[in-house]
Design a protein around this nucleic acid. Sequence first.
DNA 1: TAATAGGGAAGTAGTTCCAA
DNA 2: TTGGAACTACTTCCCTATTA
Length: 292
Amino acid sequence: MYHHLYSQPSSSGQQQDIREKQPYEAFLVLDVEATCREGTGFDWPNEIIEWPVCLMRWKDRSGEGNASQLEIVDEFRSFVKPTWRPQLSQYCMNLTGITQAQVDSAPTFPVVLKRFARFLAKHGLIGSENGRPIQRFCWCSDGPFDIRHFVVKQCFISRVPMPPWIRGDILDVRRSVSSWETDNKQETTAVEVPIYSFAVPLDITDSRRAGQLPEISRRQPLNMHLQLQALGLPEFQGRPHSGIDDARNLARIMAELARRGVRLIPNASIRPNRRWYWMGRPGEVREDLLQD
DNA sequence: TAATAGGGAAGTAGTTCCAA
DNA sequence: TTGGAACTACTTCCCTATTA
């Protein structure tokens, strides 16, 4: 009954339904931006300064849960005022494009969490009273770090417990693209970057390497640009490291994975109680331990 | 002070080839 | 036929990059 709408020709010429059974009703695509200083790495107490989320839903989900068309139905975006180090570094402003004035006039993280919870309740994802999930939704991010690191750190610094609606299921989009790319290796070599004599010194005394140049390819880490390229999508739209632009491009990747029949299910986890070396009492950053 | 994926190096076992 | 060298395929371990 759906075939005339949702099928594509197979290599044998037959029509086949490519819709995969999708257990989740909605996806929250998140790509936070956080404070940073050049050379400090990611063990530093980064504070979230932008909270952008694209809410995606199925256009064509059947009663059995089969679907392939995913679209953005709403967006939430808020800048966040850092409290531990309210002054942004020049490096951070250059990287993210976020200005000091934008964070100065922004609400603090606990306020943003409350506003975002209202956004979720408005869309029927959580209960407005208790904040408990009502529908099945899954968080999506580029790599597992946004929630695993930045949200956990920010909740510690802001002295707020991690809300129940963010402790749920997490899909690392990068990992999904990588898995899809591996499964379809014969069909695409888009992200294979050939490296010849730069990587392998040619030694004519070695018969293994003599003669024709070896066909050695090295898989690069799948940044967002390469994920788009691997899926045959147009290049990144907007400004890289702008949270909302990153989230929108991530949503494009999600939609393409869905269209290609990838089952969108969690593949990452978080540890809400994880501690970093600079963590003192709740909310306390042990500056004496920081390697500035 | 973390988890993870991926690449490179090194080691090992099996196969092939060739001279004695 | 045999022993040794060369080659290939595979596994394991270690290191690096990743995330602002």
